[in-house]
Design a protein around this nucleic acid. Structure first.
Lengths: 191, 191, 191, 191
DNA sequence: AATGAATGAGATTTCATTCAT
DNA sequence: CATGAATGAAATCTCATTCAT
């Protein structure tokens, strides 16, 4: 956790860290580069964070929260399950497309051993209401009954991989292709 | 006659590298550790590979080939598109479940900047016949018509994310759950 | 305010580098030894210089400048060409005798491939006024007309080789021998 | 000293060592490069020489002998001291111009600490008759009386430095310029 | 004798972190 | 708080030499 000093500085440190991790991979993240890109001195990073690990954890938690917000949004609640799901799916897909580096950042660190146990639990809780929504959909027989974690993994995996491919190949996504992708997702789970 | 280059050595170096990446993450791959674990001197690593980067690239290419073999297998060719697809899907899912470290290794490095351009093209070619199979399925109206790359990304993303979740949480997968996962995949693409 | 870069440090690094090159030869220059002798950490050397090569280049340029100053000195300008030439020759000969390690250092590296192109040009410019002096001597018919570069090479070669011999054999140079050497030089070029 | 096995091999090892030292400096001489350039295996170098140091010493002694032969040659003995000296000077200058890498090789190692005491004495003996010739010239009042070692150093230094300049700048030497250089040398010593 | 793969001590270089200002 | 020079442990890589064939 950062000291609550200059929030602009924190934001630029975060941004730098995310971009650098995406570009050079986690092993390529150098504190000196984070400092340079974010316009602060290396020593300053240690004013805000005790270590590289802590910095990364902070970025992770904040980003994960932002991602939760891209899915769970009061505006997305519609009349039917289908419509709400659609809004959420588009919300998430759009977010990943706009911020692929954040998507990649979060993805990379699940297995890195860098994220502390406590933070995993914390971030999982952000998605509690999404779980409720999906369970309700199963109860109402809108979608197939199955482990919700598997369901989420399936949906998220699909979105991530498609976005990665699009970003990697510099493809400009057309509306109808995006709709095709949504159809893949919906067909897979609908009852 | 001089000593002959020992191909077992290459294999043990690979094995060590993959295991170490899995255990300590990519950033944790240290040449000294690779040397120790594979039973060679550090200098020997540099007899086989010009640099750490080249070693990793070689592991990547070899692993990617192995993965292709887990999907594209003459035994998997069945009477119907559905059955063949099912065999392939199970082949890949099973591989990922057995060797999650290889799955993760390959996944991690696509964005790491560690893989050289040439190797990306090389490894892409391994999957050519899979592309043909899917295109044929579209022509025969077994599955929806859409960009094959998107189709593959969708299917692969789903598998990877589910396997990651299972491995992460140390879940022992039951047959019926595996079948549920396959159903997700098939329902999403079938016509 | 951060710590300020310490210029004394640069000087002590230079000194250490020159002494070590003299003692152990160029191949014997080890960064760890330079660090130890100059009282800094090895990492600090890389704060000041990007690489060993750059450190050596810097020492080269600074030493070459010092050598130029041993020849081109306002005090050496006398009434006649002969007297000025004599003062310069003695200045250079004396410098080489006092700092044979610097003379050798500079001599060794011209052919070593260690000196970057730009630095050769830079250091050549230090001797421009010497060229002017010699050309003027030719115009005034004090010395033979010939390519100035050859002239300088001849004079410098003579000095270096004699000094090397003296230093190698630990001879204590008598005044009259030094005068004999000067006579060799003067007789060779005078008209 | 090499074992008297394959003299062609010895010759090509020598040639490779000389060229590589000239190009990359002494510190840049790598046994693996010598092996490659001379067309033998690294192990073979150690069949001929006990160590890198011994290899270098052998090259030194052989080259030094060759150089002595370029100066001291029965054909060069003429009627007068002047004519003999001229023939010798041209012989040496020509040799240096044709084999600058050998000249540089020998020059570099005098201060390197790599040449063993014994070999220095050995090679010095090759020049004994040159010493006699110069002493005789002094007795006959053809040239100035002074320490013969200084005299040789002066003459050799001049030749080397001029040749280095010419080779460095890729100048094609004209006959008259070569004569000018000789005149410098002769004027400096003649009585 | 000849080979070149293998070695490992030791060199160069990196980089998270500390510290003096 | 902020700075960035300084640190040094630890990483990568080199290369003279050895050794199995």
């Amino acid at each position: 956790m950062p000291k609550l000093k200059d929030q602009n500085k924190v934001a630029s440190i975060h941004k730098a860290a995310i971009v650098l991790v995406t570009k050079n991979g986690f092993s390529g993240l150098k504190m000196a580069e984070v400092a340079k890109k974010s316009g602060v001195a290396t020593g300053t990073l240690y004013v805000y964070y005790k270590s590289k690990e802590e910095l990364i954890n902070d970025v992770y938690v904040v980003t994960k929260k932002e991602i939760a917000g891209a899915i769970i949004n009061p505006e997305y609640i519609k009349e039917t399950f289908y419509e709400t799901f659609k809004a959420m799916w588009y919300g998430y897909f759009g977010y990943c497309l706009r911020y692929p580096e954040k998507m990649l950042f979060v993805e990379q660190f699940i297995y890195s051993g860098y994220i502390s146990e406590g933070n995993i639990e914390t971030t999982d809780s952000y998605f509690e209401s999404l779980n409720q929504f999906l369970l309700e959909g199963q109860k109402q027989e809108n979608i197939h009954v199955m482990d919700v974690e598997i369901l989420k993994a399936h949906l998220q995996g699909s979105v991530h991989e498609i976005v990665k491919m699009i970003v990697k190949d510099h493809i400009t996504l057309k509306k109808d292709v995006m709709h095709t992708c949504f159809t893949l997702a919906w067909n897979s789970i609908k009852k």
